[in-house]
Amino acid sequence: MYKGGKIIASLIIFAALFTIPFFYNMGKVNAGPDVALDTPAIQQLSDKQCVESPEFMRANHMKLLNQWREEAVRNGQTVYINSQGKEYPISLQDTCLKCHANGSASKVALSNPASSTTGVSNPAINESPEFCASCHDYSAVKPKCWSCHFEPKEAAK
């Protein structure tokens, strides 16, 4: 081979670039996110059902939240009727976070999420409640909710 050294070195770099994920994840266990679905609020529910089916929520929750925002803020509509005809108040605090928050500390941890330190390893996302963070951290999606929905630091003191 002519200029074999350079070509082989380049090919090694090429192979290394394309196998980064294999080396990066080497020896790790494919654990997936640990989603807390047994918060006290959920345990007290008789019918353990979110506003829509879990499959729908997993894929579409962000669209639903967007729709809710539009309904509540722009159209003044505060009641959501789900696909089963059941009514829910359109509220982040009173509907979503009522269940998806961790116990007694939840109110503080939620309204001032920056104080929550548990279960969040990604500094970019550590402003979200644990329930959101578990998946959002896993797939590196930063929710924009908490850039508006937060309690001022003065109030937390």
Binding site: P21, N25, K28, N30, G32, P33, E55, R58, A59, N60, K63, C135, Y138, S139, V141
Partner: peptide, 12 residues
């Protein structure tokens, strides 16, 4: 929409 977490589990 697809279930992204499931996609990532498959990819990992």
């Amino acid at each position: 929409k697809v279930d992204l977490v499931a996609v990532k589990e498959l990819a990992i």
